[in-house]
Design a protein around this nucleic acid. Structure first.
Lengths: 222, 222, 222, 222
DNA sequence: CATGAATGAGGTTTCATTCAT
DNA sequence: TATGAATGAAACCTCATTCAT
């Protein structure tokens, strides 16, 4: 899986000199801008280069092909989100469920909305690119981090942790995406976080097994 | 925005004769198949026609351009889902929250998973096409139907119905999409429904305002 | 070997309708003309199409890529030559060496010089294309035919037929090529045939083993 | 034709310093290697420079353009062969035909097969480059030397010396090329020389005019 | 009505060459 | 003098769309 794309999707050179770094950054930024202003269909390497203020040739010195460029842009974004989630999860081990959910949701929403334009642009790319692998890898990281955290909740434990994790993650991903893609009134962006916290917490508390050796009362979960 | 596409995206003729219907269906089916087997990038009108067993010329007699074809395919699918949700919602007015959620989730998941391949194929198209409008329109219908239903719950009422509706819908959409796109272990497809019900119900009950004895009569609307 | 190129070098469709045949022929002819007037470096698909009076797209309907076009042009020429040689050889079994050589040389030179421009053009292509395989296959046919013929000479037999065949063939090929590529005064084209006959006959008679059961005297071959 | 390329194809500086010579040699060698390992199509200045261990810029300090590089590589090879042939011919004036042929063939085959890879690589370049001029010039030298030698044969004279020379030369060139390009079983490389000698000698003796006792004294020129 | 050959704009990618460092 | 990042013309090839048959 990895080896197949090894050469096809790997950037050609890592910028070391100042000039190169500037160029690579410009290309990155241009990709997002073109994506947003022109749409995925009209995202051409020529246009990206133009917008970045460099020649096509230069673009191809850093990326062996268009896919590799998109892949890199996507990877950076997803990596960023996954890292944020992982850190948040690690910092919220061994705390009550409510605190966990707050930490997780906050980290995810913050990471995704830090650069709304970037996130929005990448939804368009995901289909274009055959990003299944990449998305899978990243969502795997998020899931593992979430699972590991939930397993240490001081006030709850779960029968089917993978499923629970999946539901929480996909609810976060789904609602955030809907907001970012404009499928909700703009004010949603403001209330999203609290609503997500409420939603996740309510769900998790509902499916949690009663914690025996603790001072909590078993809820009437069906 | 809408008027701009008015002529461009409308199918050229409504099939009345038997032969036409067959052709249109074949083209529809071929589109899905090509999408799944070749990917969005390699979805060409020629390939679709070939797979459908007709000539390109014929394809263009039914759709003025490629966009219109994709638009139609997408529309049929979304229409189907939206209609299913609308019907379910209408049939669950004036019942308790739990029943509503069951009805809604069931209808949505059933509609989306009836033809897994179709649903999956269309995720690929959504980006290609500038389907924002269409998706928006359809998600609007779903939302209105959901809102209208929730407003009649016999055992709950909501302060901010639009937000609540949005959260419920996007949780459904998000988790179902994740499953269909293979971002979850296959068994998720089986437990998805019950988990979604649990999730939505837990959330709704949490955000519901306490219902004081209202003057409304519980009607047994079919 | 063959399978590797099966799809890459095979023409896309065989022209069946009158219009198509005209197009394919025009493309063929244009390839040769461009090759001769512009050189191998400037042989571009666009230029060929232009010269043929069709669009590039049309060219690509018949050949999946540039190589396939060149391959086809080359193949037709070599096939033609090989067939001519094979026929000549078959028609000159069981005759004296002198007659054989006349038949062989005549056929080869005639085939190669029938369309001097084509032959010349193809020397340019041979390197461009990795035509080693093709050339090998064709020269194999020529060699087999020559060998088979020589083996039936009424007035000679050979100790090392493959070597003898190779020398005769490569002398024919080499001198004809030199003439066609303009590496000889133009009058050479006229005397080439007789000279080649003299050369081959002299060589063959020199290396021939004395034929025992015949009425011929053993020559003083060293 | 000649003047047109005068400036374009001349190397920029003649290497005088040790470092330059090393660089030029490395570039030469790299060109051959790239040609053989990657093919004529993938012979790029960047690749050559890389393989030679220098930067493209440096390469362009020695050759004004790619053609000039190829031209120089080709020229060196052909020059080498032509010189070898010229020397051999000069050393075999005024000897019997058999001795001449031995000397000529030996020199030619030895020169061509000294560096089989180089010779093979250059066949690929010859078409790429418009090397007609160069090849013509070199083959002219070979022909003049051969003619001059043959004219002094002690045991033969020829009616049409240019034609005879051409046939001998093109038979040598043709069969050697066929062997080097792999169009013959590998053992041919070993028997090629003797066969060529046999072939040339047989031909020359056949077309030689009978030598009546001439007034020329056989000189034992070294 | 159906066909499918033809079109050509436009996309991706390469590579000889330059020039600031 | 050497470097190698940048350039951009130009090559290859695709594919939505038309229209003569």
């Amino acid at each position: 899986m990895d080896s197949k794309h090894a050469r096809a999707l790997t950037p050609r050179k890592t910028p070391r000199q100042a000039r190169s770094t500037v160029t690579v950054d410009a290309v990155f930024e241009a990709t997002i801008q073109v994506l947003l202003s022109e749409g995925a269909q009209r995202l051409t390497t020529t246009r990206v280069a133009e917008r970045a203020g460099v020649s096509v040739g230069t673009l191809y010195q850093y990326y062996p092909n268009k896919q590799a460029l998109l892949y890199a842009v996507m990877q950076r974004h997803l990596e960023h989100v996954a890292t944020a989630v992982e850190q948040a999860c690690e910092q919220h081990h061994h705390v009550p469920l409510g605190t966990m959910v707050q930490g997780l949701v906050h980290a995810f929403v913050a990471a995704k909305t830090a650069r709304v334009d970037e996130a929005r642009a990448l939804y368009l790319v995901a289909a274009e690119l055959n990003a299944a692998e990449l998305v899978l890898a990243i969502s795997g990281r998020t899931r593992r981090a979430t699972s590991a955290m939930l397993a240490t909740a001081t006030d709850a434990s779960f029968e089917d942790l993978p499923t629970v994790t999946f539901m929480v993650n996909s609810a976060m991903v789904g609602s955030t995406r809907a907001v970012l893609e404009g499928r909700a009134p703009p004010r949603m962006l403001r209330v999203l976080r609290e609503q997500l916290i409420t939603l996740c917490e309510a769900y998790l508390k509902r499916v949690a097994l009663p914690v025996t050796a603790r001072g909590e009362k078993a809820r009437k979960t069906a």
